[in-house]
């Protein structure tokens, strides 16, 4: 796939050359709290956005279910044409575990810091080093544990006419701080996807999200579709993630993101 992409690149526009508020890059619907392991867009931009997210897990034979509903506020700041940092806060996080005796909680969720640094030469294939730090700010949801998570990776994006491709491979890790278990978990999240953008105001995306080794040999292999809309400075994505294989018991995640490019 990469040689084909390189060949096509000879006739492609430079990565991140498109203007407009239409979101670019991977689908922003995540399976793990704090967006851990989620592939990032590589194009630096200064944006603000909000969006609700819902997660549903139902394991009927085990009499277990999980519902998460949250709202995020995010801001990205392009420090230069090649560098961006981001902050995502989750001021509303509702968590419910459903069993013979259910429990629920509502409060402030995770806080996530991101960084993107392009490392390509500005050609049609963009490459960036990306990183993310998830801070345990869900005070009250975690009684005694303080899990810190981080992921680093290499992301790419290439555009050719109405089509673009993107991907990311990296390393994710979580460890607990406190009297409880450290329980270091490390995994290999891999995302591949493509976008079809027939106009400046609409695009459709399909990603394949996967992870290996974080909690199982195959954590998940998920299909993540999305529809994107944009006008002027404003853009919106309606996306989801549906695990098709792996140990992750989540049925689906749905996320709506709306943002403005500043």
């Amino acid at each position: 796939m990469i040689p084909l992409t390189l060949a096509a690149a000879a006739h492609a526009a430079p990565a991140c050359s498109r203007d407009g508020a239409l979101p670019t890059g991977p689908v922003q619907a995540w399976l793990w709290d704090g967006m851990l392991g989620l592939a990032q867009p590589i194009c630096p931009a200064t944006t603000v956005g909000i969006g609700p997210r819902a997660l549903l897990l139902a394991d009927t034979p085990a009499f277990y279910g999980r519902i998460v509903a949250s709202g995020t506020i995010e801001a990205r700041l392009a420090l230069s044409e090649r560098t961006a940092v981001g902050l995502t806060m989750e001021p509303a996080h509702y968590e419910s575990t459903i069993s013979a005796l259910s429990s629920s909680w509502f409060g402030y969720g995770a806080t996530t810091l991101t960084a993107t640094q392009r490392v390509d030469e500005g050609g049609p294939i963009g490459l960036a080093m990306v990183g993310r730090l998830v801070l345990p700010t869900s005070i009250g949801l975690y009684g005694h544990a303080w899990p810190f998570s981080a992921d680093v990776g290499m992301a790419m994006q290439a555009e050719h006419g109405p089509w673009s491709a993107h991907g990311q491979v990296g390393l994710a890790a979580t460890a607990g701080v406190g009297a409880g278990p450290t329980a270091l978990a490390t995994g290999l999240p891999i995302t591949l996807g493509g976008v079809w953008r027939p106009s400046g105001g609409f695009s459709t995306v399909i990603d394949l999200q996967s992870s290996l080794g974080y909690t199982a040999s195959l954590d998940h292999l998920a299909l993540a579709p999305a529809l994107r809309f944009g006008t002027g400075r404003f853009g919106m994505e309606v996306g989801g993630s549906i695990p098709l294989a792996g140990e992750n018991r989540t049925l689906t995640v749905v996320r709506v993101g709306a943002g403005a490019r500043l």
């Binding site: 975690y142 544990a145 409880g180």
Partner: peptide, 12 residues
């Protein structure tokens, strides 16, 4: 009191 026990969390 019943609550959600997140991964890596403990109850005593």
């Amino acid at each position: 009191p019943k609550r959600i026990l997140m991964p890596r969390d403990y109850e005593v």
